[in-house]
Design a protein around this nucleic acid. Structure first.
Length: 155
DNA sequence: GCCAACGTTGGC
DNA sequence: GCCAACGTTGGC
């Protein structure tokens, strides 16, 4: 091991599809269904087991950070891309050359309260976060170490 | 449900 | 390689 620093991430999920409570119940879950190249590259090239993750609820009444998770595997091919019955099926992806990758994500804890998107927007220290940039739709993105600490302190 | 912002696709 | 059309994301 080369002492690679722990990196920090934010991963979005629609709570109606998969919530922080679902992750707590299941303990570990394969983060399938990411179909965006930039998000895939973060998982494939950036994430390593042990990295910390903000679990974010999107497309819901109160969007925001609701919990902490941890990367629990290196990236591997997302099985749903080969499953014709899955809504994530990608007929253009070949088994010899998988297009979509995922990591396993492990539950760490649920925050005592939701740190809402609205609240995050009010902190100048966070204004450079990709999450807060206008029009951003990335579902997997890096979080700076300083921003990570800052947000944790808001809880 | 609306719609702005963005990514992808495919015709040329 | 351009770009219009289309689909998706996600806040509101």
């Amino acid at each position: 091991m080369t002492g690679r620093p722990i990196r920090h991430w934010l991963m979005k999920s629609e709570p109606e599809a998969f919530s922080i409570d679902d992750l707590r119940r299941r303990r570990v879950e394969a983060w399938d269904g990411v179909r965006n190249y930039q998000a895939r590259n973060f998982m494939r090239d950036g994430m390593r087991p042990g990295d910390k993750v903000f679990f974010y609820h999107s497309n819901c009444a109160e969007p925001g950070i609701v919990g902490i998770a941890e990367v629990a595997s290196d990236a591997y091919p997302d099985p749903s891309q080969f499953d014709a019955k899955s809504k994530y099926f990608d007929p253009a992806s070949k088994r010899e050359e998988p297009r979509w990758m995922l990591v396993d994500v492990k539950f760490v804890k649920k925050l005592k309260r939701t740190i809402t998107l609205d609240e995050l927007k009010g902190h100048g220290a966070l204004e450079d976060m990709p999450l807060l940039r206008k029009g951003n739709r990335l579902s997997v993105m890096p979080v700076g170490a300083a921003e990570w600490k800052y947000i944790l302190a808001l809880e």
